[in-house]
Design a protein around this nucleic acid. Structure first.
Lengths: 207, 207
DNA sequence: AATTGTGAATTGATTCACAGCT
DNA sequence: AGCTGTGAATCAATTCACAATT
């Protein structure tokens, strides 16, 4: 599987295809054309086909893609076949919010533990069943449970240090909610979600 | 100001330059080179210069950019000079989380009101001072307060209808947390934040 | 001497156009 | 006949290289 040279955006789209496919499977469709699936996903059919052929040939000319087979391929490529434990670091404002958010579970992820400098803060975790541990137990937890993915929602000043510790302990992929540019070794992937940035960006488009 | 043909990503970067600049102003620097600012922002200096020249010439050759003047330009371009009221639609899981999140305020935005089908749901808004109103008062509120920006965090099935109502009432920019592709007229801008998608995407990069 | 501003070159992503299967 | 797979063409964004300016 050629992990390199595949455009980042293609991989994002694979997830979207998977979701669009979910709707189709409900309708009991056996087979789907690139045209139909692409339009459900909001892209051009050639783009869908090109995205898929980065990973092989899965369709049947004249017919389309077998829905179940396609689903399997997408799961394989995306790595969503095997369960991945995810930890959350920083149970403040946003962090506690994310703990309660059920959208992750819905798509097959589960936050197995959370870490914070002051793990016992009041009212923070009410309603969530995820345990919150002290930050100094984090590295051990990662090693013991072979955690490869982490979500960080700590103050920006703290972010780089946390990331260093995560990487050191073996984390390979980080979803970063702290508004900072993080330095990581090249075998580690960071996806940034910057809420304030998105709002600020929108304000540009209001005239 | 040539709103069109400027790459979307450039505009995102302008916000990052603004932030990086904030750190520099603290250090009382009068002037800053594209090289210094770019490296603080994590980009190449030529990219910064190109990004800026979409909007004019603000530097002095041989010297760099005046920090204060640059800040003013960035605020002007981004539209962050004038205060913008923002509403939130959907006070469920994620929505109530966003209500409590203070990061928006920090960057000069404030959620002035929230709307939900069941505005009185328990414990949802404890700790937040934002009023939650019934969804059927939304359109009036938008018109009365000239709201142009909205954050939506409703279930995906509901998202398109909500968006239609927002647009109809005059909203021009939408930050969408619902995992759906939204249809909007071309004078309306949507930024999507899809948390589950980001996680799924990361799982690709774990080998 | 230092640093911006910018056309030209390059790199990257998307779309086209059509050959190749079923 | 219908639809995939893909090299070639186009479009977009980034980076280079250097002339222009202080």
């Amino acid at each position: 599987m050629p992990k390199v040279e595949v455009p980042r955006k293609s991989i994002y789209r694979l997830s979207i295809y998977q979701r669009s496919r979910l709707k189709l499977i409900e309708n009991n469709v056996e087979t789907v054309s690139s045209e139909a699936l692409a339009s459900a996903a909001g892209v051009k059919s050639t783009q869908l086909r090109k995205d898929l052929t980065y990973f092989g040939q899965f369709g049947t000319r004249g017919l389309g893609y077998n829905v179940k087979a396609l689903s399997r391929v997408l799961n394989d490529v995306l790595g969503t076949t095997s369960y991945q434990p995810v930890i959350l670091v920083g149970v403040g404002n946003l962090g506690s919010a994310l703990l309660r958010y059920k959208g992750f579970n819905k798509e097959g992820f589960e936050i197995t533990a959370a870490f914070d400098l002051a793990p016992t803060r009041e009212r923070r975790t009410e309603g969530a069943r995820v345990p919150v541990y002290s930050a100094n137990t984090m590295a051990d937890f990662i090693r013991n449970h072979q955690v490869r993915m982490a979500i960080i929602a700590v103050p920006s000043e703290a972010a780089q240090n946390v990331v260093n510790e995560l990487v050191e302990a073996g984390v390979q992929a980080i979803l970063n909610f702290s508004p900072t540019v993080l330095q990581v070794p090249e075998n580690v992937t960071v996806n940034n979600v910057d809420l304030a940035l998105e709002l600020e960006n929108l304000s540009y488009f209001i005239r």
